[in-house]
Design a protein around this nucleic acid. Structure first.
Lengths: 194, 194
DNA sequence: GTCTATACCTGGATAGAC
DNA sequence: GTCTATCCAGGTATAGAC
């Protein structure tokens, strides 16, 4: 049942919510504007009033999720000072988002945005990912992390946990991600710790 | 310049080659049958003579690449007996394929096949990936690998190198993958070695 | 701001000659 | 087996009333 508030107040947000759900469920190209219209209980005209076109919806979603992640990682960097603490907190955060808001994580990680957002850079070059690489780089500089290529180090730290997230999103993991956190983190850190 | 053989002999293969190139370059949904027709220098009718529909082309590509990888990994399993040797050989193989035939790797790893192959299982459940997980499982059984959750172990071993492959496919790596192989492998193995 | 109706076109697929 | 011509569904986007 939808409250009156939900019905009228933030129609734009409802469009975004439905679009995110449909885009992750069946993919961007398998989702028509009519599907979004139907799911969000608004008219086509209303959608086009709020968004220039379908691509703009996808872009708005991407931007909002990216900002959320970027902010979270920035906060982690402010709270912790060592690479070890920071990386662990980031992985923990990514696991939590995957559980609490799998669609956001799915959209960020799994969607190949360049296919429908021509101007977008590859996901691994998005701002959150850049931050993660920076953290690893400074860990190498301080001697916390082995003096190896920064791309190798970054992929070694985050590659395992990210693959685990993919497994979770694909529904092939039995348990909640939190069950795997400590083991996965220990492997990650052991792989690069100086 | 196209030889007469190429022109007539294996038209079907030419269609597949062009489709693979276009699917990875711009994505399945951004590639029309007309694009494939144009690229392969054949008629639409000819394409539909060889393939039931567009989806069948995607399926044929997936199957052929999957079989190739599955065979390669099977051969590696026959040649080596320890988990360490097997995992290292697989990563080496994946790196080589990425360099020599990036489109195949791209198609296998990056395409979200379920969006256009409704019956397909998630990539991580495809047969090559299952084999990789089995290898890790038996490595745990023999005591070569730490006694941790098999999914954690498998993602720890292969997650880093796979992320590195993504970076390569996205064109953000400066050097050839072979330059990163030994460092990446050492991190991977260190993360799970008993 | 929101709606309905509709224009327009891309693109998958078919028919049927050769 | 290969081709050309064509059909037609579905989907994006617009027009214009309220």
């Amino acid at each position: 049942m939808m409250t009156l508030q939900e019905k009228t107040k933030d129609k734009k947000q409802r469009i975004l919510d439905v679009a995110l759900r449909l885009f992750t469920e069946r993919g961007y190209f398998n989702t028509s504007m009519h599907d979004i219209q139907h799911g969000a209980q608004v008219s086509i005209g209303s959608i086009y009033h709020h968004f220039e076109n379908k691509e703009a919806i996808a872009k708005a979603l991407f931007d909002s999720i990216e900002v959320k992640m970027y902010t979270a990682i920035t906060n982690i960097m402010a709270e912790y000072s060592t690479a070890e603490e920071r990386c662990k907190a980031i992985i923990c955060y990514l696991f939590e988002v995957t559980e609490s808001n799998p669609e956001s994580m799915h959209y960020m990680l799994y969607a190949k945005h360049r296919e429908f957002l021509p101007s977008e850079k590859p996901v691994c070059s998005s701002r959150p990912f850049s931050l993660m690489k920076e953290i690893v780089a400074s860990g190498i500089a301080t001697g916390e992390i082995l003096k190896i290529d920064v791309n190798v180090a970054a992929t070694s730290v985050f590659g395992g946990p990210i693959r685990l997230i993919f497994l979770k999103l694909d529904g092939v993991l039995d348990h909640r991600l939190s069950k795997y956190l400590s083991e996965s983190w220990e492997c990650s850190w052991r792989s690069v710790a100086a």
